[in-house]
Write a protein that binds this DNA or RNA. Sequence first.
DNA 1: CGGCTCGTACGATAGCCCTCGTAGTACGGC
DNA 2: GCCGTACTACGAGGGCTATCGTACGAGCCG
Lengths: 120, 120
Amino acid sequence: MTPAATAAGTRDLPHPARDDIRLEGVLHALSDPVRLRIVRDLAADGDELFSCSHFDLPVTKSTSTHHFRVLRETGVIRQTYRGTAKMNGLRKDDLDVLFPGLLDALLAAAARQAARLGTD
Amino acid sequence: MTPAATAAGTRDLPHPARDDIRLEGVLHALSDPVRLRIVRDLAADGDELFSCSHFDLPVTKSTSTHHFRVLRETGVIRQTYRGTAKMNGLRKDDLDVLFPGLLDALLAAAARQAARLGTD
DNA sequence: CGGCTCGTACGATAGCCCTCGTAGTACGGC
DNA sequence: GCCGTACTACGAGGGCTATCGTACGAGCCG
């Protein structure tokens, strides 16, 4: 018996409830370039889900895990297991209810800056 | 002669040029509750300028200075001396050019959360 | 079963950041 | 000239965080 992973196949990950999402936390999560990049990539493909390894990040796997966890714990993304892969999706529905228009404005701002700096 | 403060009366403060303002920096600046509160208060009164001591912040004056400096160095506010007081104003014009709609969305999100949590 | 890939956990390191206290500078008024 | 007010500079403490390496657990595939 494994110590922690209770049942088999479906390990659940802790997500904050929608009402527990805080603006400060979201802004802090998005103030890191790596995490902002992840969110932009997620938003670019609509409601698609992507595994962690799908992203080409300039950090090691350990650090990736850390960033994905920060995004999940602040309520920006939702993570679910699918086999050995972990699928990531934006919590756009919840964020739009809490802060209407904010996510779109942030993504637009990020896109604009990327275009301006040629760092796309 | 004082070592640093060149001329008399008008000490200039270093502000980033508009094109040097970074979205990550702005988000980081606004991810602190004290600084978010400052920005909200500044935005509430339109184009008014306020001295640092005008704000009733839950921190000491040293920490206030620190927060105002962070806001200035990230390009969120503009600071100018007026006598012994330092007047603070939002750089709404520059931010609106760089990131149209972002500031309003952020302020709306902050107001919405404050109303929801009763922390106004 | 044996290995392979995906992701995690843990520890360590280094850097940043929020907070404060104290000491000091700049300006205005008496 | 002198004092009070407004803000700053400096240094220190404590905590968080970004990064990595290594070692490990979970599921798939041959």
